[in-house]
Write a protein that binds this DNA or RNA. Structure first.
Lengths: 333, 333
DNA sequence: CTAGCACAGTAAACCGCTTTACATGGCGAA
DNA sequence: TTCGCCATGTAAAGCGGTTTACTGTGCTAG
């Protein structure tokens, strides 16, 4: 591969000149410019990024850590981040922590070694302080989708409270009063906020919340399934369920189908996320849509601003939207 | 950050010694080793990967190019590759081409610049020779899931022919004779092979294939939808459809639902891939499962072998498995 | 007694680019 | 005429490692 020096020699100038020319740090007369351009073309010169990075200390790369890249929600988020990064000439290192705390820690440490310019972090489990401590030492971090308390960095979240509020209101408007909630780990911000939205809607309607119908566990299909079974096994049954993720809703749907409880006939259900499959399941799922593409895009934008020192801590809340499909029916009919 | 020289100074040896010690290229007496280890611990030394890479020319990173990381099939594949890469200490650069030829070209070129050690390539559109030419110039490439004719590199594919054969056989065994196929772009290997499997099954059963019921287009929901509509609009209708991807099948399902054609009552359907949502749709989809995790794992393994020069061109075919659910019924009831 | 060898390292070049500080020539102004 | 300055560059020192070739020093074998 041709190097900068080769180009310089070919063009009859010094490597310095070529370097500075390419980085717009020098004004050269037309003739010289032409010679350099010609040499570059002739030798098919492409700068060695490794050398450039070592020299400048900037990598033009970011790290993206996701809980599970195979999960469509995170995959879409990742795709959006990647697309925006690419637009700005940034490469993205991806790591999938598979819900493993050790791997999260690893990913952050490795980020240090990879010398990426920044990190977009997603997590789906409550932090015990480990992550917060680790992230505090790093400069360019933005948190996406889920909070890690105690780190002061830009954050991009959605209106969790609003979303759950709207979902619950929809159920109440359909005549439901016995409403259960199935959600993720109690320590997670999104879980707390969605629960708060639920409580607010219930409160405003003057309905007492049954605490034993608030089932917190994991944002997973399995937990959705198990929680629904538990609900069905109880003395009294709710007539509607707010599942705080579409994965949970899917699990619920499976349990209900297995128990031959008709949806929405015998049980109404609303999800959260609006994953691609939400409209494909039976029945098509009424759910709260998160603006995934916008979230990813914005997260990268924030990170870039951070890298360029034009940004400090900010918190953005993106609006969500209730998408009404077929999984909610009027109570009793 | 502490450098190698800092460590050397602290330990009272030369940087060379430390470097060689860390890379197991020298035997040092216990005393010296201890001093170096102590210095490393004291200074919290972590080697600068950038410098190491520039120096050695090895990056311990690979590039993964996928058509669409937001697509669960590719996302799962990517997750599997990432997991295996991580096990071996490799980082992975991800790029999503969004079905754009220019972006594919870009990704490959950039790979050259990023100086990654290798590339795992997935594509979902026929190559006009551009990619083949580009890839020929690069050493460490493995093709995953789909072929690019004319490049002699390791490949990891599935038994496409077998899969379609089994799917078709299932339909024939259920009494169907009027079977249509909806598939991806005609130029794609997977499309050809799946079609071949279909023809073989039909041939063995002595059924004539209706060429106008072979609908080739894109591996997308939209095309599945449109193709199904076209099928329904015809003079005669098939009683069963082989959709060569689950995305296609979903589209078909939507079109059929809209036209109030019951599945599997009025129309049987089998998909391909066994994406996570396949069992969640209505009715749960009978489909051909691809061993996604194994594909990803193997692709990385092959690439690693290639990087270490212990491998040349190989082609692996992973077996597929017919997963019977509820979307196929006996013909006539 | 000495040649030779193993041991325990080291000096210095190099990977390819950036950047700081400096150089040269010509020209305008005093 | 001379000074200074602008335009047009250049030399060389990094960035932080790796690697090749080499050096002392002591010990052993002959």
């Amino acid at each position: 591969m041709a190097t900068l020096s080769d180009v310089a020699e070919e063009a009859g100038v010094s490597p310095t000149a070529v370097s500075r020319y390419l980085n717009n740090r020098i004004e050269l007369p037309q003739g010289t410019r032409d010679r350099i351009d010609a040499a570059i073309a002739k030798l098919d010169y492409r700068p060695n990024l490794l050398a450039k990075r070592l020299s400048t200390g900037k990598t033009e790369a970011i790290s993206l850590v996701t809980p599970e890249i195979g999960n469509p929600f995170f995959a879409e988020l990742a795709a959006a981040v990647e697309a925006e990064a690419e637009r700005h000439g940034y490469a993205v290192y991806m790591s999938s922590t598979r819900g493993d705390r050790a791997r999260e820690v690893d990913a952050i440490k490795r980020l240090h070694d990879q010398h990426v310019d920044g990190l977009i972090m997603m997590t789906n489990q409550p932090d015990d302080g480990t992550l917060a401590r680790l992230l505090a030492r790093h400069n360019n971090v933005v948190l996406l989708d889920e909070d890690i308390p105690g780190v002061s960095v830009p954050r991009v979240f959605v209106e969790n409270e609003q979303g759950a509020y709207a979902a619950t209101q929809l159920l109440i408007a359909a005549g439901h009063r016995d409403i259960a909630v199935i959600s993720g780990p109690g320590g997670l911000m999104s879980v707390k906020e969605r629960l708060a939205g639920f409580r607010r809607a219930m409160g405003e309607a003057g309905i007492t919340v049954r605490e034993d119908w608030l089932l917190l566990g994991q944002y997973s299909r399995e937990f959705g399934h198990d929680a629904a079974e538990r609900l069905l096994a109880g003395q009294e049954r709710p007539s509607a369920i707010v599942a705080c993720s579409d994965y949970l809703a899917i699990g619920v749907l499976q349990a209900l189908r297995h128990a031959e409880v008709a949806v929405p006939g015998d049980m109404s259900l609303v999800g959260f996320d609006d994953m691609p499959f939400a409209e494909l399941v039976d029945p098509p799922l009424t759910t709260v849509r998160q603006p995934v593409a916008e979230m990813g895009r914005l997260a990268f934008t924030r990170l870039l601003a951070l890298i360029n020192k034009t940004e400090t801590e900010t918190m953005t809340r993106l609006p969500v939207e209730l998408v009404v499909r077929k999984s909610v029916a009027r109570f009793g009919g």
